[in-house]
C-alpha cells in the first residue's frame, strides 16, 4: 500500500508536466497575437510600444524558452503576474482557493448525505414508491443544468421570501453562520446532479451486492435484515459509488466556474473567467493548470481510499 501511494505520487509529476505542456501549447496555438489581443484595436499604441510590451512579457523569446521560464517559475512557487492587475498570481489564486474548495466540499457532503441513504433505501425497497420516486428524481436531477437550478433558487428565494444572497463574500473566519448560509444555495445547485448520479450508483451497486452468495449465506444463517444491510452489504456497495464520486469531482470543479459567477463568489473558477474575459493569459494558464492539479490530486485520494475500504483490492 505504501509503495503504491509512493508510485502514484511520483506519477503525478509527469502528469502535471504533460498537462502544463498542453495548456501552454493551447495558449500559444490560439489564433492571433497575444499583445494584439491585449491592446485591442487601440490605434494610439505604436508598433514600438507593442514590441516593448512583447519584450516586457518575454513574448519575444522562442516558445520553448518561454515554456521553460514559465514552468521553472511554477516549480519555484512563482506563478507569474497577471497582465491585468499586475499582482502576483500566487497571491490571488491562493486567496480564491478556499472558496472553491469550500463550495466543492459543501456540495459533495450535501450530495452524499442525501444520495447514499436514498439509493440504499431504493435498492432495499425495490419497486416501492420510494424506489420509483427516487429513480424519477435521479433522471430529472441529471437533466437539470446547475446554472438554471441556481437561477431558479434565486428566483424562488427573492419572490417568495424576499431574500437575496449577500453581495460580498463572507469569510468563515469572520462569520461562520453567515458563510454557511451564503454557500448553501450555490452548493445545493452543484449538488443536485451529483445526488442523482450517486443515488443511481448506490442503488445499482446495492442491488448487485444483495444478489451475492455471501448475502444469501448470511440470510440463511438467520442474520437480521438490518445487520445484513449495514454490516454486510453497505461496505461493498460503496466502492463503485466512490469511483463515481471521483469522476464527478471534475464536473464539480467545472460547475463551480459557473456557480461562482452566478453567486458572485470570488473563487478559482471566477478568477479563471475573469482571466478569459480580459485575455489575461498568465492567469488563464495558471488557473487551468491549478484546477487540473486539484482534480488529479483529489482523484489520487479517491484511488487510495479504495484500498482502505476494500481489502480485496491489492496494490503492488
Amino acid at each position: 500500500m505504501g509503495k503504491y501511494i509512493l508510485r502514484r505520487v511520483a506519477l503525478l509529476i509527469p502528469t502535471l508536466i504533460g498537462m502544463s505542456i498542453i495548456i501552454f501549447a493551447m495558449v500559444r496555438l490560439m489564433p492571433g497575437d497575444i499583445v494584439d489581443s491585449l491592446v485591442g484595436l487601440d490605434p494610439t499604441v505604436t508598433p514600438e510600444a507593442k514590441a516593448e510590451l512583447r519584450r516586457a512579457y518575454g513574448l519575444d523569446e522562442p516558445v520553448p524558452v518561454q515554456y521553460a521560464r514559465w514552468i521553472g517559475g511554477i516549480a519555484q512557487g512563482d506563478l507569474g503576474r497577471s497582465y491585468r492587475t499586475r499582482q502576483p498570481i500566487t497571491q490571488e489564486i491562493f486567496g480564491a482557493l478556499p472558496i472553491t474548495i469550500e463550495l466543492a466540499v459543501y456540495a459533495l457532503l450535501m450530495s452524499v448525505v442525501v444520495a447514499i441513504p436514498l439509493g440504499v433505501l431504493s435498492a432495499i425497497r425495490r419497486n416501492s414508491w420510494v424506489d420509483f420516486s427516487a429513480r424519477i428524481g435521479g433522471l430529472l436531477g441529471l437533466a437539470f443544468p446547475n446554472f438554471w437550478l441556481a437561477t431558479m433558487f434565486l428566483l424562488i428565494t427573492s419572490l417568495a421570501f424576499h431574500w437575496v444572497p449577500p453581495v460580498f463574500y463572507i469569510p468563515p473566519t469572520q462569520d461562520l453562520a453567515g458563510n454557511l448560509v451564503q454557500f448553501f444555495l450555490p452548493a445545493l445547485a452543484l449538488a443536485v446532479a451529483l445526488m442523482a448520479i450517486e443515488m443511481r450508483m448506490a442503488r445499482t451497486s446495492m442491488l448487485e451486492v444483495l444478489r451475492q452468495d455471501y448475502i444469501r449465506s448470511a440470510r440463511a444463517k438467520g442474520v437480521r435484515d438490518r445487520a445484513i444491510y449495514f454490516k454486510h452489504a453497505l461496505k461493498n456497495a460503496f466502492i463503485p459509488v466512490i469511483t463515481v464520486i471521483g469522476i464527478q469531482l471534475g464536473v464539480l470543479l467545472g460547475g463551480s466556474v459557473i456557480i461562482e459567477q452566478i453567486f458572485g463568489l470570488p473563487g478559482v473558477g471566477w478568477y479563471l473567467l475573469q482571466g478569459i474575459q480580459a485575455r489575461d493569459y498568465p492567469v488563464v494558464q495558471v488557473t487551468a493548470l491549478f484546477l487540473a492539479t486539484v482534480f488529479v490530486v483529489m482523484n489520487l485520494f479517491v484511488d487510495i481510499t479504495y484500498g482502505f475500504l476494500d481489502p480485496r483490492i491489492k496494490y503492488d
Binding site: 502528469t15 504533460g18 498537462m19 498542453i22 495548456i23 493551447m26 469531482l249 471534475g250 464536473v251 464539480l252 470543479l253 467545472g254 460547475g255 466556474v257 459557473i258 473558477g269 479563471l272 473567467l273 478569459i276 488563464v284 487551468a288 484546477l291 487540473a292 482534480f295 488529479v296
Partner: peptide, 12 residues
C-alpha cells in the same frame, strides 16, 4: 486529456 475537468477545458 482525462486529467482535466471537462467543462474547465471547454471554457478555456
Amino acid at each position: 486529456m482525462f486529467a482535466f475537468p471537462g467543462l474547465v477545458l471547454a471554457i478555456v
